[in-house]
């Protein structure tokens, strides 16, 4: 790897604890640009914790994050974080358009006005997720899948280099799920790196180029066909793993 092309995301020795109980220990990995990575692991494996620690909304015990060769605040600016749908109040008095506009706030500062360019970026993002007819609706009137698309549109409007998404497929309909996957692939193809917290083992190999298998520590990370093996999954999930005869996997609740 040359200095000209630093990796999209490099995490070293990330350790996070809740109530002095470690939930994530010594996680290190490096992802190149233009990758679509699934973050997979059992419940309580620290998947969301890892994402939140990388974007800086959780205090970490130790660890170092580098984004495209930058650290600290500069690195943070290049990351776009898409939180879980349940993390905000959907009764909040804002419309779809208001929320997607928030994606431009980082560029606008406190008092800067939206330019025609900003407005075009926002309109593009909204139509890319298919919400153009609902742009003036208050967000509480939307279905779960539509709400997830609002978050995705806002993330697109941020125009980040690295996207971190926390369970975007939870509680969404099949149409939304495939629409989101489509958008994620477009992001990857345009050279962005996307990390997605995902819990469905059945669809993971189909969606992602790489898999980051996590259970408090990094179990395996690499190309999907290298990581998605019976040994690795059994290591991560233990007895909660069901293996089908056709080679597929699923978790037992």
């Amino acid at each position: 790897m040359s200095d000209v092309n630093p990796p999209a995301l490099s995490v070293r020795d990330l350790t996070v604890s809740y109530d002095s109980e470690p939930v994530l220990e010594g996680v290190s990995f490096t992802v190149g640009t233009g990758r679509l990575v699934g973050v997979v692991g059992p419940n309580g494996a620290g998947k969301s914790t890892m994402i939140k620690a990388i974007v800086g909304t959780l205090p970490v015990d130790s660890g170092d994050v580098e984004v495209l060769g930058e650290r600290g605040k500069k690195a943070l600016r290049k990351i776009t974080y898409v939180p879980q749908r349940g993390s905000v109040d959907w009764d909040f008095p804002v419309t779809v358009l208001d929320v997607v506009n928030q994606g431009r706030y980082g560029h606008l500062g406190l008092l800067g006005r939206m330019t025609a360019d900003d407005r075009r970026v926002v309109a593009d993002a909204i139509s890319k997720v298919g919400l153009q007819d609902l742009a003036r609706r208050q967000i509480g009137e939307l279905s779960g899948g539509q709400q997830q698309r609002v978050f995705l549109a806002r993330a697109l409007a941020q125009r980040g280099d690295v996207y971190l998404m926390d369970e975007p497929f939870v509680g969404v309909d099949a149409a939304t799920e495939s629409a989101i996957v489509e958008v994620l692939r477009e992001l990857r193809d345009s050279g962005r790196t996307v990390l997605v917290v995902h819990h469905d083992l059945a669809t993971a190999p189909e969606y992602f180029d790489s898999i980051l298998l996590l259970n408090k520590e990094l179990i395996a990370f690499g190309d999907t066909h290298d990581v998605f093996t019976r040994d690795h999954l059994q290591h991560a999930y233990g007895g909660r793993l069901a293996i089908f005869e056709d080679g597929g996997f699923a978790t037992l609740a």
Binding site: K52, T80, D89, Q102, G106, L110
Partner: peptide, 22 residues
């Protein structure tokens, strides 16, 4: 009025506000 944008975003989604460096 001056802090409108930040007040609104911090109230709605503090996670994004941190992410944007507010």
């Amino acid at each position: 009025a001056l802090g409108w944008r930040w007040l609104g975003l911090v109230s709605f989604d503090p996670g994004l506000a941190v992410n944007l460096g507010l």
